[in-house]
Each structure stands twice: as C-alpha cells, then as structure tokens.
Design a binder for these strands. Structure first.
Lengths: 209, 209
DNA sequence: CCGGCTATCTTTGCAGTGTCAAGTTAAATT
DNA sequence: AATTTAACTTGACACTGCAAAGATAGCCGG
C-alpha cells in the first residue's frame, strides 16, 4: 500500500518522491522522539520507525545519525534566534528589548529542553558544518546587537562589549541549563521567579537593594 | 597469572578479593575513558576492558551503567565542592572568598569537561540516589554560604538570597558550559579573559565603567 | 586441614543500536 | 517505452547494555 503522493508541492519542499517529503518528516519525527525521550536515548531506528520507514532510510537524506542531528540543531538555532527577536520587537526601549531577548532565550530553552541539550550539550552534531556554525552564530546576534547599542552608563553598557556579551549570555544560558537539568527544583515559584531573576540580573539591580 | 593481592588495606578500601579493589579501579577507568572520549560515547564494556576485567564485572559492583555513572558523579561533586572551598581558603576578605569560589567552580568545570557534563548534562546518573543528591547539594553550599555572609550593600548582597545565589550560580555555570562546548572559541585570550570576566561579574562591576 | 559457602568475576546469549553493501521500487529523462 | 537515477528496503556486521548461568578463589566452621 503506497503512500499517497499529493504532498509534492504543498510547501515547496525539495524532494518528494516515494514518501512525500521524508527529509522533513524525519526531522519532525526526530524532534518528537527527542521530546518523548532525550538526547542520550534517542535512536536513529526509533526515528525511522516513527516516520514509518525502514531503519536505513534516514541514511540517504542525512548520511548518518550525526547528519540528522546536525540538521535538527540548525532548526533549533533558527528557532532560538526567532524566540529572542520576536519578543524584543514587542518592546519599546532598548533596555526593554535587551531584557526581552534574555527572556526569549530562557523561554525557548525551557520549552525545548531536549532540543536545547542537542544544540548546546551534545557532541553528536557536526560543528564543523558551515550551516550549523552559521545558525549558531546567528542565535547570539540579537544579544550582540543589543549590547552594541547600549549606552555606556547603563547596565551591560560601555566597557568591553565582548565581556558584556559573554556575561549576559552565560547568565541566561546557565540559568536555562540549571532549570532544565533539575538543579533548581528546590526554588519556590521557579516560573515567576525566573522572570524576576532575569530582569534583575540583566538590569543589574542585584546590588541596588 | 593472578593479580597480586597486596592492596587489601593500602587505603582502607572495602572490597579486595580477586582483583584488589575493582570498584575503585573501575571508577578510575571510567573517568579516564570519559576524558579520552566523552559522555555520549562512553561504553561500559570499554571501561571494563580498560580495567582489565570482563565486560560483566562492573555489574556486580554498580548494578548497571547508571550505577557506575552515579558513583562517578558523586566523586565529581565532591571534587567540585573541594575546588571551591580550597581556593576560597587562600583569600582574605569575604568578597575575595566569594569570587574565589566562582573561579574554583569554573576551573573545575573546564579542567574536567566530560565529568562536568556527566554531573550537569546527563540523565544517565540516578538523581533519585540519596548520596548523589547530597553530594550535589554540597557542591553549591560554598556559594550559599558566601551569599549569606555578604553585606547588604555589596554586590550579590542583601535582597533575596535565593535570587543572588541563582544569579551567581547561573553565571559561573553558564560560562563554564559555553567554554566547554566550544561556544566561546572566537573570544580572544579566553584563559585570561575568563579570570577578568568572572571577577567583573561577581563583583558587579559591569556597569561601573 | 578440609569441605562447604559466598562474594567475585567470566562466559554465554539476547535484543537493540549505527552503519555499510546489495537489492528493489518508482519517478524522471530521453 | 527504455534507461537512468533517486528513494527506499533488506540483510548483515560489530558493537552496546543487560541477564543468567558457570567458574574461581578467599573465608569459615568442623
């Protein structure tokens, strides 16, 4: 019983031979599998089974497991970029935009813990891949831009921009990682507290009270 | 050719039957294997081979792979604790001790990247294990203590101690993670810069210039 | 000192994994 | 319509973690 093949052009996807668009379907299945399980127990054969194809089908589109995870990580970085910029656009001042990007970063990470782990905690994707490097670089561009635009007196403004960037990045990144790996379970009202915390840190109000 | 069995009491280790102290030897082999490879490609059979025993030998001491990694993670957390306290003891003021703990945290993480990943980025250890939970809690005790002792006007002093703790922890943790996973390779003089960066952030000087 | 006892370790077997090689199907091309 | 070629399947191999059963050797009560 062959699959219907109506899907060749529904979203202008590239390959649409036997399956419809197996490449996209595999990526979707991989992400679903990632959410059900986690990075460490995700199997290529499980992804293939979920997509309804044979265990060797992914090889043709991605080469090997690393190839699939590289492609998935690229998508993840694109979404991380989007998560920051979309939030910052809703704001008014530069300060608000900066903080909004931080919130966007944390929100993406906690909403997609397994994908975030793949992007930042796994050595399985191929980080020599040019597309992946580009996507990863783009994902910190929003923070870079905000820091470049900050006035020299404001928090995270002035001084060495690299230092400021790394400090802000490390903060939201570490915060997200600690949450995702259960190290902050003892914190009361983590959801609400995280909002306040990121605000406080990125506006540098920790020492002001 | 049986192994010599002189080792039964050299460090008051527990089991010393056929091997000498296989439990400790396996943990040592596991850490070595972890440094050669990484968390994701570490195999129980490889650890056993490295220790010179059959592939099923670890099961008797640790139950399964998760058990071995749990034991190894406990050791890691103990060393992380030590890395912070030993550094802070060399300092004078409370402020210096606080910053020294932060440096100790980052130094441990970057000196033992694979072990650090096991402790904070893997779901293979059993975090329901009471000993592991205890060891993990101890590892943040140094920061907790410093924050509790800080004067209300100084950086990371006053206000909600939980917020301060999480902020400081997230910062050093995120910084270490970004370094270990190669996200800061573009930063010039990362070694020297990290010293200055952690200093700047933990003393809250980011907005002062 | 010796026969059982038990903890320690080995051997064997099984299901699952990633990857390669060869085969099969069906769309595209001429 | 025949041929080429991309897309997928099947089968095999080495490796993995794990369970069960067997072998080894230190211990202990007679």
């Amino acid at each position: 019983m062959p699959k219907s093949k109506q899907a060749s052009d529904q979203t202008a996807q590239k390959g649409a031979y036997h399956h419809g668009d197996l490449r996209a379907a595999l990526l979707q299945a991989a992400e679903a599998e990632l959410n059900d399980k986690n990075i460490e127990s995700l199997s290529l054969r499980g992804v293939a089974k979920r997509a309804g194809v044979s265990h060797a089908a992914p090889a043709h589109h991605f080469g090997d497991k690393s190839g699939l995870l590289t492609a998935l990580a690229i998508i993840g970085f694109q979404r991380l970029t989007e998560a920051q910029t979309s939030r910052s656009k809703l704001t008014g001042t530069e300060d608000e935009a900066f903080v909004a990007k931080g919130h966007g970063y944390v929100a993406f990470a906690t909403a997609n813990p397994a994908l975030f782990d793949l992007m930042f905690g796994s050595q399985q994707p191929d980080y020599a891949d040019a597309d992946l490097l580009h996507a990863a670089n783009q994902a910190i561009a929003p923070l870079v831009e905000s820091i470049a635009h900050r006035a020299s007196g404001s928090p995270f403004g002035g001084g060495d921009p690299t230092h400021k960037l790394v400090a802000a990045w490390a903060l939201v990144h570490g915060f997200a990682g600690l949450i995702n790996h259960g190290k902050l379970r003892w914190v009361d009202d983590l959801e609400g507290g995280s909002e306040a915390l990121v605000n406080a840190v990125l506006t540098n109000e920790l020492s002001k009270r």
